[in-house]
Simulated assay, not measured.
Amino acid sequence: MSTRDRNVLLIAFAWLVAIVATSGSLYYSQIRHFTPCELCWYQRIFMYPLVLILGIATFYGDARVRRYALPMALVGGSISALHYAEQKIPGFHPTACAATPIPCNVAFVNYYGFITIALMALTAFTLISIALFFVREEGP
């Protein structure tokens, strides 16, 4: 398999993850009517553009997408990790939205006692980051 073909598969995988994550986010807010907290909004700021950016990169087979999509995924993942810590670590007090109407330490969903929306977002950002980490630009 050529480097270009491998890159396209990795970018397409990252794009699919971003689509699923964005769809899940919209499902919880628009269908289930969960009001996003402040950290949820920050995570959306980093996830939603990845759908468009990675989609275009997949279409054109552009490995240079790694330069700007990987930092977005890493920052978004860091926010998700902070959000999950606020939800699951006892005594870890909310930092970003303690005084907002929707506190960040409230988990609207808690599947199996540990899967929250923040963990789902962290998983998506991690998968995107790993895929983009292995994308390599082709030499001259």
Results as ranks from 00 to 15, higher is better:
residue 38 E to K: 08
residue 39 L to C: 03
residue 140 P to F: 05
residue 138 E to H: 07
residue 96 A to E: 00
residue 84 Y to Q: 07
residue 22 T to I: 08
residue 61 G to Y: 10
residue 100 T to H: 12
residue 23 S to G: 15
residue 84 Y to M: 07
residue 2 S to V: 06
residue 105 N to W: 02
residue 99 A to Q: 02
residue 24 G to D: 05
residue 4 R to Y: 09
residue 17 V to D: 09
residue 29 S to D: 05
residue 139 G to Y: 08
residue 59 F to E: 01
residue 17 V to R: 09
residue 112 Y to H: 05
residue 59 F to C: 06
residue 109 V to A: 14
residue 19 I to T: 06
residue 130 I to H: 07
residue 119 L to F: 15
residue 89 I to N: 05
residue 125 F to H: 09
residue 98 A to F: 09
residue 123 T to F: 15
residue 29 S to E: 11
residue 50 L to K: 01
residue 34 F to N: 05
residue 119 L to I: 15
residue 49 P to S: 02
residue 17 V to M: 12
residue 85 A to G: 14
residue 109 V to G: 11
residue 92 F to I: 06
residue 69 A to M: 02
residue 124 A to G: 10
residue 81 A to Q: 01
residue 68 Y to D: 00
residue 53 I to L: 14
residue 122 L to V: 01
residue 42 Y to P: 00
residue 17 V to S: 12
residue 136 R to W: 10
residue 20 V to Q: 13
residue 57 A to L: 09
residue 67 R to C: 03
residue 129 S to G: 15
residue 75 V to W: 07
residue 77 G to N: 04
residue 93 H to G: 02
residue 40 C to K: 09
residue 35 T to N: 08
residue 54 L to C: 10
residue 57 A to M: 06
residue 65 V to T: 11
residue 51 V to F: 10
residue 45 I to L: 14
residue 68 Y to L: 04
residue 92 F to N: 00
residue 35 T to S: 12
residue 34 F to P: 01
residue 64 R to W: 09
residue 119 L to K: 13
residue 1 M to D: 10
residue 81 A to H: 01
residue 9 L to I: 13
residue 19 I to Y: 09
residue 28 Y to G: 06
residue 67 R to W: 10
residue 114 F to R: 04
residue 24 G to C: 08
